[in-house]
């Protein structure tokens, strides 16, 4: 579209650049502000006197002797043991992603190659399941899980997250497998492979880009979840997001808000790295569903 750009008038260029610039500021400013503010004391982050105190750290200098302080991080990670929540998050996210992808790859492949009517209906049911608010399902788990003594444990949360993740994973991998030519595994079948052998030796080597993209979204779902982890995990097994919500429950004391701010920044950092390295996959994953319609 370069030819279009060349011909458009100067005012359009200025307007659209200004708009993009404004959007970039709106999208990034909250993160930068919170990152900067997490190294201040509460009196600066929420300033009664002057909002610029947060920039210069006026009260931070008075209270701690420096313009930056790691007190929030120290409080969150050491005093409130946020590292426990981090380890729990790692466990939950790792197993959720691995199991989701294993189940989803097999299922998605079958759905893409079946061509029978019931495959279509399964996809439709998966779509309805995907639209279900997670908390409605959680209200169904709670009573049985208490009864069977499953409540509060990490494996319970993992398998629930895997299940909630399945509809989306199936849809995404289904559309990726549709893009892999049918001839590939059919010729393997003609050569005498069973379906599983064809999958193992012909499809598996070429499916990784799609699997990695789907894995990124499974990661995000498990990492960002609040409804399941906050309701189904006991206090000791809490992951990061419910732990942050827990800080807010006890924010009456001065300074505890800063623990939450520090924890929020800590929990956001891995997502930044993820977007930084996998931007291309994320964009292609978001559009994959759209292109398929």
């Amino acid at each position: 579209m370069s030819s279009v750009a060349n011909r458009s008038s100067r005012s359009v260029v200025i307007f659209s650049s200004a708009f993009v610039l404004l959007w970039v500021v709106i999208a990034s400013f909250p993160f930068l502000w919170t990152l900067w503010g997490s190294f201040k004391v509460q009196g600066d982050f929420f300033s009664k006197a002057d909002w610029r105190n947060a920039l210069w750290g006026t009260r931070t200098l008075l209270e701690t002797g420096g313009t930056f302080t790691g007190a929030g991080y120290e409080g969150a990670w050491i005093q409130e043991e946020f590292w426990r929540a981090t380890i729990n998050t790692m466990i939950v996210v790792f197993f959720t992603v691995i199991i989701s992808l294993t189940f989803g790859t097999l299922g998605g492949y079958a759905l893409a190659r079946s061509g029978h009517k019931y495959a279509f209906w399964l996809l439709m049911i998966a779509l309805v399941f995907r639209a279900m608010p997670h908390i409605t399902l959680v209200s169904g788990y709670l009573l049985p899980f208490f009864e069977w003594n499953l409540w509060g444990k990490l494996p319970t949360a993992i398998i629930v997250l895997v299940a909630i993740n399945q509809p989306f994973t199936l849809w995404m991998l289904h559309s990726f497998f549709l893009n892999i030519p049918k001839d590939l595994d059919e010729s393997a079948r003609v050569d005498g492979c069973t379906q599983i052998q064809a999958f193992r030796h012909v499809i598996m080597p070429v499916m990784w880009p799609g699997v990695i993209t789907t894995g990124l979204f499974s990661f995000l779902l498990a990492y960002n979840d609040f409804a399941v982890t906050s309701m189904l995990l006991s206090e000791d097994n809490r992951t990061m997001v419910p732990a942050i919500a827990g800080f807010l429950g006890s924010t009456l004391e001065e300074g505890n808000v800063m623990f939450a701010v520090a924890a929020v920044v800590s929990a956001t950092a891995p997502l930044f790295v993820l977007v930084l390295f996998f931007q291309r996959q994320i964009v292609s994953g978001l559009t994959a569903g759209a292109v398929k319609g």
């Binding site: 999208a27 990034s28 993160f31 995000l220 990492y223 960002n224 609040f226 997001v241 942050i244 919500a245 929020v264 929990a267 956001t268 997502l271 930044f272 993820l274 977007v275 931007q279 994320i282 964009v283």
Partner: peptide, 10 residues
């Protein structure tokens, strides 16, 4: 991408 990728609660 950041506002979308961020944990909703965060």
């Amino acid at each position: 991408l950041l506002p979308m990728m961020i944990t909703p609660l965060v």
